[in-house]
């Protein structure tokens, strides 16, 4: 499956409608595609191009700029081990080695069973909890090499299924703007006056 399924297509349209210009929905739609398939497929990029009115080259141009989008099959669990300053100061490389040893792969690789992809990542904004890692962008703080082994074991055994959804899923709660409450997106070039709560000044300028 590479094109959006019906539910996701509806979600895609809902997302696009939130932006004054459809291209703004590009990154959210790439996330949605990755959530559906675990990575971003060629077909998905073509469909996204159609949905937001750009060329597929523009979609991959934007998509490939960002670290999180994967364009090839990726493990069910993507383990990102932080290697930046604060974590490095506190033994991040030990975590990486432990993970490499336990999984039998090098950073950048995916296990043969398709369960794990291992990465050395950049600063994860948890520097005071160093060294840390993320599994599918869920944190594990103050990790130790033993902790890494245990974590991999738990993941393999499915003991963390409730907490950690498969790769691609970020927030499990989506924003919904209720139809009766939402203001709606307006073409920026179609607006010329100030918003209602800003009094119009003499020249009609608004502050």
């Amino acid at each position: 499956m590479a094109r959006f399924n019906e539910t996701n297509l509806a979600t895609a349209h809902e997302i696009i409608a939130r932006y004054p210009r459809p291209k703004s929905a590009l990154i959210p739609l790439l996330h949605l595609a990755q959530e559906q398939d675990g990575y971003v497929t060629d077909e998905a990029m073509r469909q996204i191009a159609d949905l937001v009115g750009v060329t597929p080259a523009e979609v991959i141009g934007t998509g490939s700029f960002y670290e999180m989008f994967r364009f090839e099959p990726t493990g069910r669990y993507l383990i990102n081990i932080c290697g930046t300053m604060s974590c490095a100061l506190l033994g991040a490389s030990d975590l990486l080695h432990a993970a490499e040893r336990t999984l039998g792969i090098h950073a950048g690789g995916t296990t043969a069973d398709g369960m794990f992809t291992l990465h050395q990542a950049e600063c994860q904004a948890a520097c005071t909890e160093a060294p840390c890692l993320q599994v599918n962008y869920r944190y594990r703080f103050r990790m130790t090499p033993d902790g890494v082994e245990q974590l991999i074991d738990d993941l393999r055994a499915g003991r963390l299924d409730d907490e950690i959804p498969p790769h691609g899923t970020l927030a499990r709660v989506r924003q919904h703007i209720p139809a009766d409450r939402g203001v709606g997106a307006v073409d920026p070039d179609a607006v010329d006056g100030p918003p209602a709560w800003i009094p119009v000044t003499v020249e009609g300028a608004g502050s």
Binding site: G63, Y66, V183
Partner: peptide
């Protein structure tokens, strides 16, 4: 009246 639209990045 204002909408707040949640948007997230992708690692950069």
């Amino acid at each position: 009246s204002v909408d707040i639209v949640l948007h997230w990045g992708a690692g950069a």
